[in-house]
């Protein structure tokens, strides 16, 4: 594997996670608990899709075969996506969404903080710009976790269940393979174990404020680095890709 090949894969991991989470967040449109939350969630969806566009475009530029952001988003199959297992989890109820977003945003927050000084200029610039956005996403989701955790008995039970049920997908965030080994050596990527310890701290702080219990790490689901996902991803992609697949000659 060349550095370039590794970097393309790295861009897809980040870009796909942003894309899939953005797609998930946009499902909330007109379904929020109050109008203000509808607006906030649409905002988060917009940020993620914007971030995805940069990363997918960059993957295409690096590859040099003329593939665009839309080619990556609309013309790949399930087994060619590298998004985190967390990002594709269905929205569930508001608490499920907030928990998923919190765990993913805390990861992005520490990832982008570190990547802001990546030796790859574009990755560094993308990280610096996205950091502002994910700082807001992290605050938004953390505040909701605290409100739900320390709100009513019902909300506390619900959000604790959300955390317990999604926990097995968190280990996947920190998995590494030879892509990481190569890019870490080049000063482009960051060692995921460093992110993990910072992520642990953020998660613990927020859960403590929310009076919620952090589940003990048991079995962790794996697979996204090899393009293996839950059954949910295929449906999400089928819906997202419908038009370009149905009308391959059309430009939109």
């Amino acid at each position: 594997m060349t550095t370039k090949e590794a970097l393309i894969n790295y861009c897809l991991r980040i870009g796909d996670t942003s894309l899939i989470l953005g797609q998930r967040m946009s499902e909330w449109c007109s379904n929020g608990p109050v109008l203000e939350e509808d607006i906030a969630m649409t905002n988060i969806a917009l940020d993620h899709i914007g971030q995805a566009r940069t990363m997918l475009t960059y993957a295409g530029v690096l590859e040099g075969k003329g593939r665009t952001e839309d080619d990556f988003a609309y013309k790949r199959n399930e087994r060619e996506f590298y998004n985190s297992l967390l990002s594709e989890r269905p929205n569930g109820h508001f608490g499920d969404t907030v928990v998923r977003n919190f765990l993913q945003s805390a990861y992005f927050y520490h990832l982008y903080t570190a990547l802001s000084s990546s030796k790859d200029e574009l990755i560094a610039a993308h990280a610096a710009k996205s950091l502002k956005e994910v700082t807001y996403h992290l605050r938004h989701s953390a505040e909701w976790i605290v409100r739900l955790g320390d709100g009513t008995d019902e909300s506390k039970n619900k959000v604790q269940t959300s955390i317990n049920e999604i926990w097995e997908y968190t280990g996947n965030l920190f998995e590494m393979n030879d892509v990481d080994t190569l890019l870490i050596k080049e000063g482009i990527a960051i060692n995921q174990t460093e992110i993990k310890s910072k992520w642990d701290k953020t998660v613990d702080e927020v859960l403590e404020r929310a009076k919620l219990i952090r589940p003990t790490d048991a079995y962790m689901q794996t697979g996204s680095l090899k393009g293996m996902h839950s059954e949910y991803l295929g449906h999400l992609i089928a819906e997202m890709q419908f038009l370009p697949r149905a009308y391959p000659d059309a430009k939109w």
Binding site: N31, G32, P33, V34, E37, H93, F94, G95, R147, L148, G151, T152, E154, S155, K158
Partner: peptide, 9 residues
């Protein structure tokens, strides 16, 4: 569906 969320807030 949002009622429990508003109540919690």
């Amino acid at each position: 569906n949002g009622e429990w969320v508003r109540k919690a807030a």
